[in-house]
């Protein structure tokens, strides 16, 4: 175990897989000599060369489309989209092609690829460098969507994603790259896709969340503990597939559920989680399910106070948790 930054754990997974499997390569914008705009791929071109750490033309649909073709031929591409906000030109390739390749060919052609993209706000990224777009992909069978909240999970889930025989979207909260560090296993480390993790065991209320919000919820839970409220926290880690059993179990554990995501509330993943609980655990509930998400506006603003208004934080989450505990 070594304490590592979230960003370094992501790189670790890629480097380890590229060392052990020559079919793995990365492609994207500015990922070569520049090491990516966030430096996720820093130093990789020196070890693996410009063919396996490939700077591509600035064209996202091309990046993903080329990766799909390479994957069809048995390579294992990791495509980096510079910001998730810029994934939209590639959505046709992701939804019409990558997600459907296995299905439409009756299990003949496949698409073993990873698309990595930083998402999330709170970094003065304004409308087009701050969004959370996971809900859009969450709806698409054929894809997997992974959002790790710890450095250890970042390494373990990315390793699993690279080895996965199907397309995986791997969303990294950019605010966590250098703010989150934890113990990361040094050698091979695989975290299975589709398994949630209990981050805190509690008895009064349950918070179900993912990404940066896991950390905010943990901080809020520390506050609430001082007030005598015990919080159970479930980190989803993968949102497609969802760990339904873990969701239902954690809902039943306290009977009071708060679902939190940074993404705006309407049509977000929280709606699906609430529906699962309503279908499977309604009679175990002691309060209506509460969803806490971003406001339903197009995206967050550049202005600092407007951005703060948009973003959730530990205090806002704590407020919702208190209200739920008091119900």
């Amino acid at each position: 175990m070594t304490v590592k930054l979230y960003i370094d754990a992501i790189r670790d997974a890629m480097v380890q897989e590229m060392r052990s499997d020559p079919s793995v390569f990365v492609l994207g914008e500015d990922i070569g000599l520049r090491g990516g705009v966030f430096r996720v791929t820093q130093g990789m071109i020196e070890e693996f060369g410009e063919q396996r750490v490939m700077d591509t033309p600035l064209a996202e649909s091309g990046i993903v489309g080329v990766a799909i073709g390479a994957a069809a031929m048995g390579l294992k591409p990791i495509a980096e989209i510079q910001f998730v906000d810029f994934i939209l030109p590639a959505v046709n390739q992701i939804i019409s092609e990558a997600a459907k390749m296995r299905y439409r060919s009756n299990d003949d052609w496949t698409c073993p690829m990873v698309i990595r993209a930083p998402f999330g706000g709170g970094v003065h990224g304004a409308l087009y460098h701050s969004q959370s777009l996971e809900a859009m992909f969450y709806h698409i069978p054929g894809l997997k969507v992974v959002i790790p909240s710890t450095a250890a999970d970042a390494k373990g889930l990315l390793t699993a994603a690279i080895r996965d025989p199907d397309p995986v979207l791997f969303f990294e909260h950019k605010g966590m790259y250098r703010s989150i560090r934890d113990d990361v296993p040094d050698g091979e480390h695989v975290v299975p896709i589709g398994q949630a993790a209990v981050r805190r065991v509690g008895t009064d209320i349950t918070v179900i969340t993912y990404g940066l919000m896991v950390h905010y919820a943990m901080q809020a839970a520390d506050e609430l503990e001082k007030e005598g409220i015990s919080t159970h926290i479930l980190d989803l880690r993968s949102i497609l597939p969802l760990d339904k059993q873990a969701i239902v179990d954690s809902a039943k554990k306290t009977g009071k559920v708060l679902v939190v995501h940074e993404d705006n509330k309407t049509g977000g993943v929280g709606g699906e989680i609430s529906a699962i609980i309503a279908e499977e655990a309604l009679f175990d509930l002691d309060a209506p399910i509460v969803r806490l998400g971003g406001p339903d506006v197009p995206a967050m603003a550049f202005n600092a106070s407007m951005e703060r208004f948009y973003m959730l934080n530990p205090a806002k989450i704590a407020d919702s948790m208190r209200a739920l505990a008091a119900f």
Binding site: I68, S96, E97
Partner: peptide
């Protein structure tokens, strides 16, 4: 959509 795919297939040929 098949055009970038073919390019990716050709990339596989070159890389290997």
């Amino acid at each position: 959509t098949q055009i970038p795919h073919a390019v990716g297939m050709a990339l596989a040929a070159k890389m290997r």
